[in-house]
Nucleic acid binder design. Structure first.
Length: 286
DNA sequence: CACTTGACCTGTCCGC
DNA sequence: TGCGGACAGGTCAAGT
């Protein structure tokens, strides 16, 4: 489910809601979804919520903190303790039914608010780690795509270390750049007019420049819209994002390209569904 | 070593 | 309507 914009939106939501509260209780409904001894967290106060790539880091005032990865279908839903429903619209009544059959973990706080970790496919996890291990556990991640060290020189250099891979595979490799997933890889390549099957040597320096700019552009736009709710993604209030209305190629196979009118195609590339416009994304400037 | 495939899960959708 | 197979925002481990 969540890529950088979605995880960032969740991080911002958590920072506004759970910081300053103490963990009162943790209920685990699926053992593979919560790793570590939950007792170690009881009584600790949340002091900071951060994001690195697609990981969430929830720090406490103790040595033990939480590392969270939502993988494909993980959701974090926050409910205040006053039991008031968020709006009371019929479509949102499901919030009142939490925990439900997809709730894997429920964390209760000192102010009686609760955080639900829902995850249909059980790929995601919440892990207790030592604060001092935080850096080393995340050390395999590449630069943040919105920071300055993700630039054309960097991508050009690192891509040419892997001449056999396609440019899309490189964008999806978290050790090369951290936070891009299938949606934004396809969207960034469309914006840059680069065919996802291109190999590093097919691309000119200018293409790398365009691609870096396009990655940053599409991620920033998505942040503005609160992320993409293609299937399961919801923010911590249980609401959808809006970026799905602004996608050019992802999940738009057989529809007309918004730029040229040709049909968007979907292929399988390195095991992932890959969407692009064969006309707009023909080649490169090389 | 570098790259590809299958596995992890549950649910939905599409074709027959 | 039912059944089987393919597929789904991600990442590992195992296999080639």
């Amino acid at each position: 489910m969540p890529e950088l914009p979605e995880v960032e939106t969740i991080k911002n939501g958590l920072a506004k809601t759970i910081v300053g509260h103490k963990i009162k209780q943790i209920e685990v409904f699926s053992n593979k979804s919560f790793l570590g001894k939950k007792e170690r967290l009881l009584g600790s106060e949340i002091v900071l919520v951060e994001r690195r790539g697609k990981n969430l880091i929830v720090s406490t005032d103790r040595a033990n903190i939480l590392l969270i990865h939502l993988k494909m279908t993980g959701q974090l839903i926050y409910l205040r303790g006053d039991k008031r429903l968020a709006g009371g619209h019929p479509s949102r009544d499901w919030l009142a039914e939490l925990p439900n059959k997809h709730t894997r973990v429920m964390i209760s706080f000192s102010n009686n608010s609760r955080l639900f970790f829902n995850d249909l496919r059980k790929f995601g996890w919440i892990k207790i780690i030592k604060n001092k291990d935080k850096q080393s556990l995340l050390s395999g991640l590449g630069p943040e795509p919105l920071q300055k060290n993700f630039n054309d020189n960097y991508l050009f250099t690192v891509a040419n270390k892997y001449p056999k891979r396609t440019i899309k595979q490189l964008l999806l490799d978290q050790s090369i750049v951290a936070g891009i997933g299938n949606i934004y890889a396809d969207e960034a390549l469309f914006l840059a007019k680069i065919n996802p099957q291109s190999r590093p040597a097919d691309l000119a320096k200018k293409d790398y420049q365009n691609l870096v700019t396009s990655v940053k552009k599409v991620l920033r736009l998505s942040l503005l819209h609160g992320g993409t709710s293609d299937r399961d993604y919801l923010n911590i209030e249980g609401k959808k994002g809006g970026m799905q209305n602004y996608l050019h190629v992802y999940h738009r196979q057989d529809q007309d390209c918004l730029l040229c009118g040709e049909k968007i195609v979907k292929i399988k590339l390195a095991g992932r569904g890959t969407h692009y416009c064969p006309n707009c994304q023909k080649g490169t400037t090389k």
